[in-house]
Amino acid sequence: MIIFQNVSKYYDNQTVLKNITFTVQKGEITFITGPSGAGKSTLLKLMYLAESPDEGDIVIGDFHLASLKEAQIPYLRRSVGVVFQDFKLINSITVFDNVALSLRIRGVKEREIRDIVSNALKKVHIRHLSDSYPTSLSGGEQQRVVIARAIAAEPLVILADEPTGNLDPNTSIDIIRVLRELNAQGATILIATHNRELFRGTGNRVLKLDGGNIVGEEAG
C-alpha cells in the first residue's frame, strides 16, 4: 500500500530525511514517532507531495511519486486523506461544506454528498455540528471535522500529522479511538506523533525517527 524506497529530503544542504525505507501494508495502522524536528511531518508531506523527495521513490497504491506528472498530483491527493496538525479548515463555510468539499472536488453528486457527509460526521460523533462554522468549535471538534473530511471520500490511506497536538489528553484519547475505529473498518492509517501515550500498549507498529533516520521499529 505504502512503500518508501531510500527516500531523502534536504533543505538548504541540511538533511531532513536520509535513506528512509519502509513498507505499510493495506489495513495496517502505523505510528511514526520521534522528537520535534525528527522529520515526521516532512515524511507525511512527501506522501501527498506538499514537498517533493530529493532522492528515492515513494509508492502509494498505483502512484509512483518519483515519476508522477504534475497533472496527476490532484489524483494522488484524492487517494490520500490527510488529518492536518493545523486543521486547514475553511472558516467561511460550515462543517458540512468543509467535509463536502473533498467530495465536490471529486465531482460526487450533491444527493450522494448529503448521505456521505452525514455518515462521515456520524463516524466521528459530530453530526449535530453539521451547520456550525469551524470558528465556533473547540479544538477537539475541529480535529474531528478534519478527520471526517479525510475519511469522507474513502481514500486509500489516511495520514494524521500530530492529530492530538493541539488537544487536551481526554480529547486526544477520543481522537485516537476514532482513528482506531476507522482502522478496524479497513482503513490504512499512518499517524505521526511525538506523544508516546497514544500507542503505548496497543501492539501497533511504531517507527522511530530521529535526525532524519529511522532508528528503530517496535510494537507499541
Binding site: P74, L76, R77, F84, K88, L89, L101, I105
Partner: peptide, 14 residues
C-alpha cells in the same frame, strides 16, 4: 482557501 482546496486534490480547472 485555495491552498487548502489544492491539498484536498482539486485540479487546476476546479
Amino acid at each position: 482557501e485555495i491552498e487548502i482546496i489544492k491539498l484536498l486534490g482539486a485540479t487546476k480547472g476546479f
